[in-house]
């Protein structure tokens, strides 16, 4: 596909040109970077640091109302969901973009999910080449790459004064057309510079693990006493699952507020005891051990069986944000060495 050059100081103009889209971009809020709908391009904060959340929530929100009803009115879809404007998510890290690749089969295979798919199809992902990986990044160990265009529609690479803009898909081409006024053609020197940066990126990833054979080890040692050791410090909170770009478990609940009721879909977390609690009171995963084991089993065994890839993009959030330092990479190494 085509290559362009975007002067950094014209980025705002480029974003403004996308008036047919709702633009989501990282915004700085009290020390955090969060993806939010922006109305003014100046709000965008293109520093990818400290993103406790992936842009997963733009397409798969934490809580989403599916139906509204009350005692006088039959259930109907909430206003505003149908006929949305197409969306652009700006400033996506390549690992997070791969995350959507792992969510897609879940929501489109056996039971196509209209809520997810509609938004997914109308959303375009503009990624940033990840030139400074974070201490706990391990994307290269799970098939990713800090400069990977996989899952993205457009990939930007920071060349200092300019962004090198690669169009990856036809959806991306459309956006490039809308912003064509501020784009120029790169020189061959800039092309080489970009390729050099892409080549250097993987070497900057400092945490690695060879995942070969882990799936069978997890299966084989499913009842090993070591799981208990690994889960000893876990406090059963939902941080790892709620910040994960590939976790997708949800619950459907009917909620009543002031005489109205909503049927909604909300994220659930396999780390909560409630997650597997049966109506009878029996809980097949009663302790932290079973729950932590389940999460690793799902990501590194079951997901491979179902979709051929591990359910992990190596973004390192669950390691960085875990309050008690449950370290996924270290745990995988323990399992591998069993």
């Amino acid at each position: 596909m085509e290559h362009f050059l975007l002067e950094k100081n014209r980025l705002n103009e480029f974003l403004s040109a996308l008036r047919n889209y709702e633009v989501f971009a990282p915004v700085r809020k009290v020390g955090l970077t969060v993806f939010e709908l922006i109305t003014n391009p100046k709000e965008a904060m293109l520093d990818l640091k400290n993103q406790p959340q992936s842009p997963k929530r733009v397409i798969f929100p934490q809580s989403e109302i599916l139906l509204v009803f009350d005692k006088n009115n039959a259930a109907k879809e909430p206003k505003g969901r149908v006929g949305q404007k197409p969306q652009v998510v700006f400033g996506v890290r390549p690992c997070d973009a791969r995350g959507f690749h792992m969510l897609d089969p879940v929501f489109e295979r056996e039971y196509p999910d209209p809520y997810y798919l509609q938004k997914r199809q109308s959303t375009l992902l503009v990624g940033f080449h990840c030139s400074e990986p974070y201490p706990n990044c391990f994307c290269t160990s799970v098939g990713g790459n800090p400069s990977s265009p996989e899952g993205l529609d457009i990939l930007l690479t920071d060349l200092g004064e300019q962004y090198f803009l690669e169009v990856i898909t036809s959806k991306g081409e459309q956006v490039a057309k809308e912003g064509a006024a501020v784009l120029s053609s790169p020189t061959s020197q800039q092309q080489t510079e970009k390729e050099k940066l892409s080549g250097m990126a993987p070497q900057k990833i400092r945490r690695t693990i060879d995942t070969e054979g882990i799936a069978s080890k997890i299966e084989k040692h499913f009842d090993h006493s070591l799981w208990r050791e690994l889960s000893g410090k876990c406090i059963s909170c939902g941080i790892c699952t709620y910040t994960c770009p590939t976790c997708h478990c949800f619950d459907i609940q009917d909620e009543r507020v002031r005489g109205r009721a909503n049927r909604l879909r909300i994220w659930d977390s396999c780390m909560f005891p409630e997650y597997t609690l049966h109506a009878s009171g029996h809980n097949p995963r009663p302790t932290r051990t079973e729950r932590l084991k389940n999460r690793m089993y799902h990501k590194f065994k079951q997901n491979i069986d179902l979709y051929g890839v591990p359910g992990c993009v190596g973004c390192g959030r669950c390691i960085t944000l875990c309050p008690e330092n449950v370290d996924l990479v270290a745990n995988l190494k323990v399992i591998k060495n069993l």
Partner: peptide, 16 residues
């Protein structure tokens, strides 16, 4: 409002 709007309800504050 600004603070609570960001809460993820991960229950970490309770569990810790």
């Amino acid at each position: 409002k600004d603070k609570f709007a960001r809460c993820l309800r991960c229950y970490a504050c309770r569990n810790a």
